[in-house]
């Protein structure tokens, strides 16, 4: 391969065969992600994809980038540590709705607040896929399951509004089946400074077969992205949940990372203890 030849999406794909069920929406997310990385002209070694636990969280190993498949719910702190310590890396954190909004919910709030320059992709299938079909925070209240017979009766969590209210700098919704749109949203998110959040509706064909219908429900947002959080919130709160595109693009100052310069030596620091 000519070193200067631009990389293709397939150059970002590893040889490992995904564990996902045939038809799982996550295959499409993987494809869009590799296309976005090719479009972004990043080298695979300059990108790290960090995840937690779940079907969706298996994604790092299917890429040729650096990856970290951590524990359930802690992908954002892992990615945060990496990005602050290594600001030269492009950090993409990815996972599921259970991983990100339930066990990892507190980290989600604070990652939005902290506004570190990284991209967080949640493959939302409104279910715990890996543990075989329990309701997640985004599941409809009347969805019946063995663990919550008759449904949870609980209001679904609204990740986009929460992200906005907590200070995320870029908020978008995507649909896994819309590869072109998702690819573009991922590369826009990576390019946008600060914390970017994309909720990708990604059907679980095994435990939520009715989600196959999502492809006909999806539509583009009626208006352009706004930088006014109040307007964005109103739109997100009142739309039908199938509006895809950038919903908010802010200009909050990203987290301040140290300049990496050695202003003092350790010997200088020791002076304060001298009698």
């Amino acid at each position: 391969m000519n070193v200067s030849a631009p990389l293709k999406a397939s150059d970002f794909k590893s040889d490992l065969k995904p564990v996902w069920c045939p038809g799982c929406g996550d295959y499409h997310v993987l494809l869009s992600l590799t296309k976005a990385l090719a479009d972004l002209e990043r080298k695979p070694e300059e990108v790290a994809v960090i995840s937690g636990i779940g079907c969706s969280s298996r994604i790092p190993a299917y890429l040729k980038c650096y990856g970290f498949h951590g524990v359930h719910g802690r992908s954002l702190p892992l990615g945060t540590g990496l990005k602050v310590a290594r600001p030269d890396m492009t950090v993409i954190v990815a996972g599921g709705d259970g991983d990100g909004f339930s066990i990892g919910g507190n980290h989600f709030l604070h990652a939005c607040r902290r506004n570190i320059d990284l991209t967080y992709i949640v493959m939302d299938n409104r279910v715990y896929g890996m543990t075989k079909g329990q309701p997640s925070p985004t599941t409809e209240p009347d969805w019946d399951s063995a663990l919550s017979p008759g449904g949870t009766g609980l209001n679904p969590f609204h990740p986009l509004v929460i992200a906005l209210a907590s200070g995320a700098n870029f908020v978008a919704r995507a649909f896994s089946g819309d590869i072109r749109g998702t690819t573009k949203l991922i590369s826009d998110a990576v390019n946008h400074p600060g914390f970017s959040f994309i909720q990708i509706l990604s059907p679980c064909v095994t435990f939520r077969p009715e989600q196959k219908e999502w492809k006909s429900a999806i539509h583009a947002p009626p208006v352009e992205a706004t930088d006014d959080p109040a307007r964005a919130a109103r739109r997100i709160m009142t739309d039908d949940g199938f509006n895809v595109g950038v919903l908010y693009r802010g200009d909050r100052r990203p987290y301040k990372i140290g300049d990496g310069v050695e202003h003092k030596t350790v010997a200088d620091l020791e002076q304060e203890f001298q009698i």
Binding site: V71, R74, P77, T80, G81, A85, R86, M89
Partner: peptide, 12 residues
């Protein structure tokens, strides 16, 4: 979070 942050940084 703090433990995972240091694991992420050290991985880096």
């Amino acid at each position: 979070s703090s433990i995972n942050m240091i694991i992420g940084a050290s991985y880096g």
